[in-house]
Design a protein around this nucleic acid. Structure first.
Length: 1000
RNA sequence: GACCGAGUGGCGAAACAGGCAGACGCACGGGACUUAAAAUCCCGAGACUCGAAAGGGUCGUGCGGGUUCGAUUCCCGCCUCGGUCACCA
């Protein structure tokens, strides 16, 4: 009684593949290989809860692609590994004392078991985990590369890809040292900076070393950061969602702290521009470009007024710009002169409309500009602002706040004195931390000016406005579009774009401003205060008293990896002090050969670090000499197909590209980009839920089906104002949700209704979540239907990129298809697994060959397009054709087993062996189709009258337009309909259709 | 608010160099097999409507326009849902 039994079949083949090392890929291509193909899944974080059905979606897609390509002769690299550092294992350690490494190993074992259970054809010999010392040794090494690199924006060069570029990451030893720095101070006490990457720095003075430190791609800065007391660590901006931590939703506060930063902004332009040629979805490219947020504008200096003069309508100071036109002044200084507020604006054309200025509360000039009368108010505002988390700031968005400093600054274009305020709607971290406010042409400034009764002056006229603007009038609404200049002196009448260019040039000539570029992207906050991350390979020099001198030394490459210290207690310190500061002294301190005392860096790297370069290590995961053999990098990179969730659109994908470009600039990799083609799989939602809405009042004590009273049809409900649930359209009464089962509803007209009523109910799917209880566990699905069914269903649900709801009965459907396939090949009534007697060595008919070749063609082309759902449909059609046919030509069935194999590999292998093959089909030749079998002698085409379908006719496949027309005219249904009508036009497209355009 | 994506039967979807809307699957209905059920096999099916039936008709791809012999597909304007970013000067 050999029925289709995946629970016997699947483990058998998984074991076979393991034992025969079927998918182990040597780095040298097999004889006759058709080129390389590197297909990669975004590697998972091995969480304690195991695999989610979302994981196998992308993994099955890539597995199909690689199995198909192996059969086409490609040399395929398809590895899997673990992004295993991170907070959950450490949180668990805090609670239980279990070392994070132990938890991590258990979780990895679960994930590996689950992935093997699904029959993915990974080369497991290349498995790696970011937590392996043999791996993070090289993560630390790459960090040292970043530490040893400065970015030269003007350097022109041609990379190994043959492209010319401007801007390059160069060794810190090549950083030009300004004379004034060179001349500063004696040589430092530090003799030997052991950093092998820049050994020459040992002979450098402290001043030079500090200058270098300021220019490295990895640097320490003291800046306000997102401190999360709940997690005991700081978080990157990207890890903070609505003022709470992305993980765990703990509150986050801002405080200044010394932190490692990576200078990703230096690469902002290249990261944005080089997106161009990538085979990525446009939406992801757009997301990255938005994230980088490049803007071009101007920096302008406003001198702080030393004496306040009451405005009487005339300029109170000479307009500097006018002077400048006559006498060229010194060039725009690199740093603003003392007593000068430098602002960044993208609208220098609105300079004549400035009616106040705003400094960020943290701006260094606030202290000096604040007048004694305003001091108390300003200090209070700054204190409050410093305590505000981002959430509070966002809440304030509706209601702008700020305080007048009492100081004034002079507008360089017209000499006017304008009041200087502080307000937290201006961020210290963007531009110069100060703005010129033009309320007439900026939404935020408009709101602020309204709030504090600050004058508003229009300087841009809307060209679409039929009313000519009245000079100096208070505008009634904000106008932020481009237009034509008014109230702007000699610039009046200029269109915005032209004005911008002119005034930027004029300001530059006068030394008052210059063009400037800014990015929304900030430098990457790269340190965390936790245990379970890569330790930094950095030492801090200490003075005699044991205090840090501010100078650092790097470990040499030979000293890597820097291992974690042994610790018993994983509790965070509860303060911003990193928990590694509690490490034993033997780990924390050492004395250098030159007898300088050193203390180890106690921060650790963020989780993103390890995932930034794992795709490189897979090519050469055992190499103990280098992070990757250059020849292997050249051979395998870039990744040809990268599949993962869209949630990594900006973070992981931007960070990896950044690291890759640094490695590229430093000559360690030859490809400028890591990932060629990128595909994001869509989220899988929970099973659709049926909901009826019941009037809360009347609902009491009533069973959903016991009565219809109180139920409200869907059309009479609207979403409640708070977004939670629904209310009655008319009475506004809140309604109770009643969950229904499929048996309780029926279809009626175009709706689903409560059985026996006309009450329309709602059918919707929701994100899978523990709280909703709609999570599907792959283990359960495999137990019941087998891995092949799970794989097939995940692909059959719909297009890969699309969001789609889970449906257990859908799994049942593909299971039935696999069982029918089984019965097509196997005689279920025999005692043993034997080929079905209906399968015979007979010559297939032309029709049978056409079905086969059509199927081969469709499946092949659909796999190439990653259109797996339609490929499966075509195979189902094949089964519908041949499933119960007797006799069944073996020559038609055998290729079908191969077509099925990328999708349902276990079943296909079994069928292949039943067909008499001894070897795995993993490397069997993929079937090919022959166009000659596809030709049909007769085709059916539609006949339309005035574009409406009236009949279908059978015509010879090659019939020309005239033949089509006469055949159509002769048709029994068409003929009477054309009789007595005037035929205005006939459209006959050979092979497609005929359309008669008639009158009368 | 900005950007991106999507709206097609009861449900998941398919078809778009413009040419038979709804392939394939689920759920559903009918039949065969069976003592019975499950499994399996065969058949049916967008909605409305005319007809005893065979077979017709009308309407149908979120809504309103447009281009075209012909629009799910192209253009313009909206609506709804989902995702992402949200004071970036």
């Amino acid at each position: 009684m050999p029925r289709y039994n995946p629970s016997l079949l699947e483990p058998k083949w998984q074991q076979f593949w393991d034992e025969h090392q079927t998918f182990v890929t040597p780095n040298t291509p097999q004889a006759g290989a058709q080129g390389k193909l590197y297909v990669l899944d975004m590697f998972p974080y091995p969480s304690g809860s195991g695999l989610h059905v979302g994981h196998p979606e992308g993994y099955t897609a890539t597995d199909i692609v690689v199995r198909y390509n192996r059969m086409r002769g490609k040399h395929v690299l398809h590895p899997m590994g673990w992004d295993a550092f991170g907070l959950p294992a450490e949180e668990h350690a805090v609670k239980t004392g279990t070392h994070p490494a132990v938890t991590t190993k258990q979780n990895i074992d679960t994930f590996r078991r689950q992935l093997k259970m699904l029959g993915f054809s990974y080369d497991w010999s290349r498995e790696l985990s970011t937590t392996d010392p043999g791996y993070y040794r090289w993560t630390q090494w790459i960090f040292l590369q970043l530490y040893d690199t400065w970015y030269d924006p003007d350097y022109e060069w041609t990379g190994p890809d043959g492209k010319q570029r401007k801007g390059k990451g160069r060794p810190i030893s090549e950083l030009p040292i300004p004379e004034e720095v060179k001349g500063q101070g004696p040589r430092g006490k530090g003799q030997g900076n052991e950093g092998a990457l820049s050994p020459q720095s040992s002979a450098l003075s402290d001043a030079v070393r500090k200058y270098q430190d300021q220019h490295r791609l990895a640097y320490i800065s003291e800046a306000p950061v997102n401190w999360c007391p709940g997690l005991g660590t700081v978080l990157a901006n990207e890890e903070v969602i609505d003022g709470k931590s992305e993980r765990g939703s703990h509150p986050v506060v801002r405080m200044p702290l010394k932190q490692w930063m990576l200078r990703i902004t230096a690469y902002a332009d290249r990261l944005a521009n080089e997106l161009e040629d990538l085979g990525w979805p446009d939406s992801i490219k757009a997301l990255q470009r938005n994230w980088i947020g490049r803007s071009v504008g101007a920096e302008v200096d406003f001198k702080i007024a030393s004496v306040r003069r009451e405005p009487d309508g005339s300029p109170v100071s000479p307009a500097l710009l006018q002077q400048g036109a006559h006498a060229p002044r010194s060039p725009f200084p690199k740093e603003p002169a003392p007593g000068t507020i430098r602002v960044y604006t993208t609208r220098p054309d609105t300079l004549f409309g400035v009616t106040y200025m705003v400094l960020a509360p943290e701006h260094p000039l606030v202290d000096s500009i604040t007048t004694p009368e305003q001091r108390a108010a300003v200090d209070e505002y700054r204190r409050k602002a410093s305590l505000k988390s981002d959430l509070d700031r966002t809440d304030l968005a509706k209601d702008k706040s700020g305080v007048f400093t009492g100081g004034y600054a002079i507008n360089p274009v017209n000499g006017e004195q304008v009041p200087v305020w502080i307000a937290d709607y201006v961020l210290i971290s963007y531009g110069t931390g100060a703005i010129m406010a033009v309320p007439a042409h900026d939404e935020r400034d408009w709101a602020f000016a309204q709030q504090y009764n600050i004058p508003i002056r229009a300087v841009v006229a809307n060209p679409a406005d039929p009313q000519p603007p009245i000079l100096n009038s208070q505008p009634s609404e904000v106008f932020t579009e481009l237009g034509v200049a008014i109230n702007s002196g000699k610039y009046n009448g200029l269109p915005t774009a032209e004005f911008k260019a002119r005034i930027t040039a004029d300001l530059a000539a006068a030394g008052l401003g210059k063009e400037a570029v800014n990015y929304r992207l900030r430098d990457w906050l790269f340190s965390r205060q936790r245990y379970w991350g890569e330790p930094f390979p950095i030492w801090h020099e200490l003075d005699e008293a044991g205090n840090p001198t501010g100078l650092m030394r790097a470990d040499t490459a030979a000293e890597l990896p820097v291992l974690h210290p042994h610790m018993e207690d994983f509790k965070p310190t509860g303060t911003p002090e990193p928990m590694l500061a509690k490490a034993p002294d033997t780990w924390l301190y050492k004395t250098a050969a030159d007898s300088v005392k050193l203390k180890r860096e106690t921060n650790s790297m963020p989780q993103w670090a390890g995932s930034c370069w794992y795709y490189l290590r897979f090519c050469d995961n055992q190499n103990s000499e280098r992070f990757i053999d250059p020849a292997l990098e050249k051979y395998w990179l870039p990744v040809d197909l990268y599949v993962g969730g869209a949630e990594h659109a900006v973070l992981h994908l931007l960070y990896s590209r950044f690291w890759h470009k640094v490695l590229f600039d430093r000559g360690h990799v030859t490809s400028p980009e890591p990932f060629g083609k990128l595909v994001n799989q869509g989220m899988i939602l929970g099973e659709a839920e049926l909901t009826a809405y019941q009037s809360a009042e009347k609902a009491k004590g009533l069973h959903p089906l016991g009565t219809t009273s109180g139920f409200v049809t869907l059309k009479d409900t609207i979403e409640s104002p708070d977004g939670e649930g629904r209310i009655h359209k008319d009475t506004k009464e809140p309604l109770t949700l009643v969950k229904l089962t499929a048996e309780q509803v029926e279809k009626q007209g175009g709706n689903l209704v409560l059985k026996g009523t006309d009450i329309v109910v709602e059918s919707r799917s929701f994100k899978m979540s523990k709280s909703r209880g709609n999570v599907i566990n792959p283990d359960d699905v495999v137990k019941e239907y087998g891995a092949d069914s799970l794989r097939l269903y995940e692909m059959f649900m719909g297009p890969l990129e699309q969001v789609k709801p889970w449906s257990m009965s859908g799994v049942e459907g593909v299971y039935r298809f696999l069982a029918r396939t089984w019965r097509m090949f196997v005689d279920e009534r025999a005692d043993d697994v034997t080929l079905h007697p209906a399968i015979q060595e007979i010559t297939p008919t032309d029709d049978q060959l056409r079905v086969l070749h059509k199927t081969i063609k469709a499946v092949t082309e659909d796999i190439e397009k990653l259109s797996f759902n339609t490929a499966i449909s075509r195979m189902m059609e094949f089964i519908n054709e041949f499933g119960t046919l007797e006799p069944r030509p073996r020559a038609v069935l055998a290729p079908f087993a191969l077509l099925l194999s990328p999708f349902a590999p276990h079943l296909a292998e079994e069928l292949w062996s039943i067909l008499g093959h001894q070897e795995s089909l993993a490397y069997a030749a993929w079937p090919t189709w022959d166009e000659k079998y596809l030709i049909e002698s007769e085709i059916e085409i539609p006949v339309q009258i005035n574009g409406k379908l009236r009949a279908k006719i059978l015509v010879p496949a090659g019939a020309d337009a005239a033949t089509l027309q006469s055949l159509a005219e002769a048709n029994a249904t068409i003929q009477p309909q054309l009789a007595g009508k005037q035929i205005v036009k006939v459209v006959a497209v050979p092979g497609r259709m005929v359309n008669f355009v008639v009158k009368g």
